[in-house]
Design a protein around this nucleic acid. Sequence first.
DNA 1: ATTAGTCTCTCCAGTAACTGGAAGGTCAAG
DNA 2: CTTGACCTTCCAGTTACTGGAGAGACTAAT
Lengths: 127, 127
Amino acid sequence: MNISKAANAADLPVKTVRYYADIDLVPAPSRSDAGYRSYDEASIRKLVFVRRARLFGFSIDECRELLGLYQDQDRTSAEVKRIATKRLTEIKEKQLELQSLHDELQHLVGTCRGDHRPDCPIIDFLG
Amino acid sequence: MNISKAANAADLPVKTVRYYADIDLVPAPSRSDAGYRSYDEASIRKLVFVRRARLFGFSIDECRELLGLYQDQDRTSAEVKRIATKRLTEIKEKQLELQSLHDELQHLVGTCRGDHRPDCPIIDFLG
DNA sequence: ATTAGTCTCTCCAGTAACTGGAAGGTCAAG
DNA sequence: CTTGACCTTCCAGTTACTGGAGAGACTAAT
């Protein structure tokens, strides 16, 4: 399977698939005589796995780690849970941060008349 | 005032202040004979302004715009409010995204026993 | 057999906003 | 006069791609 078919099957841009091969995250299992990357079903499953993990916000390095666990029949669920829990903690932290950001900015936007006059509590707050 | 004093006063790393000068966001108002950047009170206020705006998640380009409005006595509060409202919308979108991410991952982590056994709903879901 | 169009390849550069480090000039204190 | 802290510029690296150039490969139609 050439790269565009594989990319299509995994719902990823061709460029991204090539990139994942370059960084050895999901290498093409073989090459044609002309040097074309050739993908099989197993590698497409890996590409899909990575796409989903990326959607969850796992970094490339975490994807690499998860992919290793994905392919390892002997890994424990504890290993996987550790990575997912770490990510969950990051998400919670980011949520708190965004919430206070939201509240403050909401307040500022609420108190700014937003008219033709120059006085502006937003600028006053920042300056 | 040399760069390290200015950076200290604005609570920014020296590297960052130099960077802001390089990209012409907050240039040093003058240079010493030896070529040292020299900062005055006005530029420190601008550095502080940028630091606060960055904390709010405004991009460098937005900071550039806000800084222009900050220094413009004739600008209307509507111009400022527009940028802040845009940022607020982005924050809300990101919050929604994070919330669904959180819920899904929370669920997966909750259903994974995280023990020595290999079966893992997190991997199953991603694969 | 040639040609047009659609692949594919590699390599280079750019994105955002810094950060780290090397090599070298400057300044104040002892 | 030397030591140490400061300053300068320039280059490289970070994350995860994305865009594009230039060149080779493959397919279908003429």
